[in-house]
Design a protein around this nucleic acid. Sequence first.
DNA 1: TTGAAAGCGGTACCAA
DNA 2: TTGGTACCGCTTTCAA
Lengths: 325, 325
Amino acid sequence: MPTIIDVAREAGVSFKTVSRVFNGEDTVRPVTREKVREAARRIGYSVNPAARALRSKASRKIGLLLNNPSLSYSETVQIGALLAMQSEGYQLVMLDGLTAFHAEEGLAGVVACPPLANDPDILDALGESHLPFVRVGAERVSQIGDKVGIDDRAAAREMTDYLIKLGHRRIGFIEGAAIYDVSRRRLAGFNDAIHRSSGAVQSITASGDFSYASGLLAAEDLLSKDNRPTAIFAANDEMASACLAAAYKMNLRVPDELSVVGFDDSPVSRAVYPAITTVRQGVRDLLSASVDILSGRMSGDTRPAHDIIHAHEVIVRDSAGPPPE
Amino acid sequence: MPTIIDVAREAGVSFKTVSRVFNGEDTVRPVTREKVREAARRIGYSVNPAARALRSKASRKIGLLLNNPSLSYSETVQIGALLAMQSEGYQLVMLDGLTAFHAEEGLAGVVACPPLANDPDILDALGESHLPFVRVGAERVSQIGDKVGIDDRAAAREMTDYLIKLGHRRIGFIEGAAIYDVSRRRLAGFNDAIHRSSGAVQSITASGDFSYASGLLAAEDLLSKDNRPTAIFAANDEMASACLAAAYKMNLRVPDELSVVGFDDSPVSRAVYPAITTVRQGVRDLLSASVDILSGRMSGDTRPAHDIIHAHEVIVRDSAGPPPE
DNA sequence: TTGAAAGCGGTACCAA
DNA sequence: TTGGTACCGCTTTCAA
């Protein structure tokens, strides 16, 4: 493992300068800085978190703003954050809202998750704090802060296309709660696919709020229509799992008589029978990317705001098939 | 924050001796060792993970043997482990079986979770490795290794008592998979409560394997009996959630016409409607305790095997109530 | 069985 | 804008 001394030798500067570069101090000439970065890259240097933590008075605490009611989403996010931070030697602090954020002293950076990631008050507070922060799965509603997410709209479009390709011509969509941007984006993606079919496919929309209970209501509503859909696309897995229960109640076999698909690839999508076809958004990767960005910002990366779009993936499992003829 | 130097001064030895004590080297006289431990306790000393990590060549890697098919259990365990390790400066390595365990070099210790925690091959390998290890939620089937868990039997008894106290006189139980010790223990606890009622309460048992699909089958079986139970106790939350679906299908309102309770307090128990009354086993605390024990073993604790029983708790939510008259 | 000196890989503080 | 020195808290190596 190379150290700053090796980098210094390689770059022809003192090790102190190397230290400065990796701490984002602005008292290094751009030329020198680039020379050092280049040398570090060449010999594969990365800072030793233990050494830094030992000497540095600076905080290594990263706050995770998270109050999502979906426990499985929250747990996945937390694992991703913890995993990403452990290798970098950061310490995770859970923050469930504005009060917790204000009460926490000595934060080095923040990762904000929906719905907090779009909360204007949170955004204001974050801006005023001058702390580096990353918003996960959020809308680019503000010019401050970096953003990491997937293209929900494209993903929803793909999932709908998949259903259409299976032969469905009457598809129901259960929306998510309005306070989440993703609800709107997923609905937009669904509509994109429907519109592209130029009338060949009919759509029916029911409202939900991402909860199981709301999914149950919406599914009953959709399935009790005279001309009920042969497939239902729920904006998240919990509502999709509620669709399964509704289908079960009505003696509709899934996927033979009704197809059901979800979104998120949450644990529940696999816990249920049949396992739900869904969209994976790689929450862990998202969090890992967030921590990377934060880490860069904390060591002086002053480039314009990042807006990173990660890949998504349609996970085909057992809950969707061709429509009954 | 006191350092080893402070402890050394307090104990009247050199700081090197303090270091030795906290690293479990056996070249320290018991008297001296105790003197040091006492002094450290007095001034509230604890080792600085960063400093240790920096200097030490010794591994800080702890393996987590985990292949539980329940994703929510696995995620909870992982969070608990990550949380406990981050503060101590350990690094987590996921191990999904014997092969992974053998392939991983330089492990400092291992935490094993069910069902691997009871696998004879794993136990053999662990014993041969001479690594400190803790088994979570396992049976004391072997004399090696420490163990951390809850009293599943007592917890199941309490939950059954709760149902009896609500007035139920005909209670169904859905068993877990036979390869897990906990299945047997939870069933035993259920039977304890039934037997104590001296005939006042009837029980019906159906077999399951912890999966949603098996819960669906078992619930249908139980509910289609002539004299069906007024309450069902499923050995885990996923099967309890399947009971909800079965009840929904048969138009049995929960909890008015049928009570359903689960075990584990997993995310699904809250994701579903109505939220499931369940038993919380505090997986995070269990993992935190495991890491503590491991940490002690790695720094020379040679006391006899621990066998720590944590508290459990019946979480009353909305899925159970008095039976219909 | 115990202790002294050296140093792990960085950062803080001050000087140039 | 850059460099030098001290030193963080602990473990390692070697000597007593």
